[in-house]
Computed example of a mutant assay.
Amino acid sequence: MRARTNEIIISDLLVGCFECCIKCLGGIPYASLIATILLYAGVALFCGCGHEALSGTVNILQTYFDMARAAGDTIDVFTM
């Protein structure tokens, strides 16, 4: 009889835990969570596209514009 009592107590605890989890999940602001994820995805996309655009610009400048350099000059691509 005692084992049956333990089973009932354990099942009551599981139901109580489930109800507690449902209450906590119900309090999450899903709209804000989705907006935050979209914000980070947008920032990552913006940074990636900006990096690709700047790399392409540097390649175009190096390909189509020639600079006369003196011996021993070191010049950075971004100071053209």
Rank of each mutant, 00 (worst) to 15 (best):
14 L>I: 11
11 S>A: 08
62 Q>P: 04
65 F>A: 04
76 D>K: 15
53 A>I: 00
15 V>R: 04
69 R>A: 02
6 N>I: 15
80 M>W: 10
1 M>E: 05
71 A>W: 04
48 G>M: 10
12 D>P: 01
3 A>E: 15
52 E>P: 02
67 M>W: 08
51 H>I: 11
19 E>R: 04
45 L>Y: 10
55 S>R: 06
53 A>Y: 04
61 L>P: 00
74 T>V: 11
55 S>I: 05
6 N>F: 14
67 M>E: 11
10 I>Q: 10
37 I>R: 14
75 I>C: 13
74 T>I: 13
58 V>G: 03
29 P>T: 03
31 A>S: 09
65 F>W: 02
50 G>V: 09
15 V>K: 08
63 T>L: 06
20 C>F: 13
62 Q>Y: 05
64 Y>C: 02
18 F>T: 03
1 M>L: 12
30 Y>I: 06
69 R>L: 04
10 I>T: 12
15 V>S: 13
77 V>H: 14
8 I>F: 05
47 C>I: 15
28 I>G: 01
8 I>R: 09
69 R>W: 01
47 C>M: 12
16 G>C: 01
72 G>I: 05
49 C>Y: 13
50 G>R: 06
33 L>Y: 03
15 V>A: 15
23 K>N: 00
4 R>W: 10
41 A>Y: 06
73 D>I: 08
75 I>Q: 12
2 R>P: 07
9 I>W: 04
22 I>G: 02
28 I>R: 01
57 T>N: 06
73 D>F: 07
10 I>A: 06
58 V>D: 00
59 N>M: 07
39 L>H: 13
40 Y>I: 12
28 I>T: 01
69 R>S: 00
62 Q>T: 03
80 M>E: 14
7 E>D: 07
58 V>R: 09
40 Y>T: 15
36 T>V: 12
74 T>S: 09
3 A>I: 14
9 I>V: 11
23 K>H: 06
52 E>C: 10
76 D>Q: 14
68 A>H: 10
16 G>L: 03
5 T>D: 05
68 A>R: 06
54 L>W: 06
75 I>M: 12
46 F>M: 03
40 Y>S: 14
79 T>P: 03
46 F>Y: 11
43 V>N: 00
4 R>T: 12
50 G>Y: 11
33 L>H: 08
68 A>W: 10
52 E>W: 14
45 L>R: 13
16 G>Q: 02
59 N>H: 14
6 N>R: 14
58 V>W: 11
15 V>C: 05
47 C>S: 10
60 I>G: 09
27 G>M: 01
40 Y>C: 13
63 T>S: 08
28 I>Q: 02
15 V>M: 09
59 N>W: 07
61 L>Q: 04
11 S>D: 06
29 P>N: 01
65 F>L: 07
21 C>R: 01
8 I>D: 01
34 I>S: 02
1 M>Y: 05
19 E>N: 01
16 G>T: 02
15 V>F: 12
13 L>S: 07
12 D>A: 14
28 I>V: 07
42 G>C: 03
12 D>I: 10
22 I>F: 02
51 H>G: 08
80 M>A: 14
43 V>K: 03
54 L>C: 03
51 H>M: 13
38 L>C: 14
